[in-house]
């Protein structure tokens, strides 16, 4: 027999597969590339606007996949899937493409509140599995509420930048709507923030009572209204300097890709970040 050791990323990936399968999600394997046109028309939905391209032997311009969700919607459109894939993006402030490993799930179709609750639960359980005993937190917000408040606002991008940065002085200086300022400054514990949530979101959060110590209602999770339209969430693990999990509801994208009246929700866990603990991690 050969002895071998798994890297922390490989170990996390296997644990996550076990978790998602135990909740009835099927493994989805996809091609590493799609035709460039598929992404070019949907750049609003991509976190990185740069796309790594190459010309196929038949002369077609192809792209190395910058995003998983778009491909899963294109090729399936409904069902519960999990994946373990690489994506190719230029991270913010980087000057070159990076290969990024991510595991995650997509849940699509005519969804019930119980489906949304299950995805949030899986996000928390994913954090538990990879936290290695460290504390973790899942920030949850409702992008739909922000969208409603900002309807007709000309400075949406600037307001969202302030919201994502907890920049209350900035929001006040630009006379952002009071309702939005209140969302930016709420006490994030679920028990205290229920009055600020829609009935549907409050019902979902209420159904996750056993995780309330790790759940935060934090509207800084909404940094764009292009991709997500309902629930948006970000997961953090103590000692890892950035969000290691990111997800949300993408009904708008489902509709734009031809799945009328269908909804979608999912998240990705950025496995490369597992090794990025900071030195000052006390």
């Amino acid at each position: 027999m050969f002895n071998f050791r798994l890297t922390p990323e490989e170990e996390a990936s296997l644990k996550l597969r076990g978790l998602y399968e135990s909740y009835g999600y099927s493994f989805y394997r996809m091609k590493r590339f799609e035709e460039y046109d598929f992404y070019a028309g949907r750049k609003d939905f991509l976190t990185s606007k740069s796309i790594l391209t190459f010309t196929d032997i038949n002369g077609k311009l192809m792209a190395l996949r910058p995003d998983v969700t778009l491909s899963v919607i294109k090729h399936t459109g409904s069902g519960k899937f999990y994946y373990d894939e690489k994506v190719y993006r230029v991270p913010r402030n980087a000057s070159t493409f990076h290969e990024i490993s991510q595991s995650g799930i997509e849940c699509m179709g005519h969804l019930q509140p119980s489906d949304l609750r299950e995805v949030l639960e899986l996000a928390i359980l994913s954090l538990h599995l990879i936290a290695d005993g460290k504390r973790c937190v899942l920030d949850v917000a409702d992008a739909g509420q922000v969208s409603r408040i900002l309807q007709g606002n000309d400075d949406t991008a600037v307001v969202l930048h302030c919201l994502a940065g907890k920049n209350l002085h900035g929001l006040k200086a630009m006379n952002a709507p009071d309702e939005l300022v209140r969302l930016a400054e709420i006490d994030s514990h679920p028990e205290n923030s229920m009055p600020y949530l829609t009935t549907e979101t409050a019902g979902i959060i209420d159904g996750l009572k056993k995780y309330h110590d790790e759940l935060r209602i934090d509207f800084s999770a909404v940094n764009s209204l292009n991709y997500y339209n309902g629930l948006v969430f970000r997961g953090f693990i103590e000692g890892i300097p950035e969000a290691i999990l990111s997800g949300g509801q993408y009904d708008k994208m489902m509709n734009m890709m031809g799945h009328k009246d269908a909804q979608g929700i999912g998240f990705a866990v950025y496995l490369d970040m597992i090794g990025r603990r900071t030195l000052n991690d006390d």
Partner: peptide
């Protein structure tokens, strides 16, 4: 503030 540090 660092976003993750702020959580913990």
């Amino acid at each position: 503030a660092n976003k993750s540090a702020y959580k913990f």
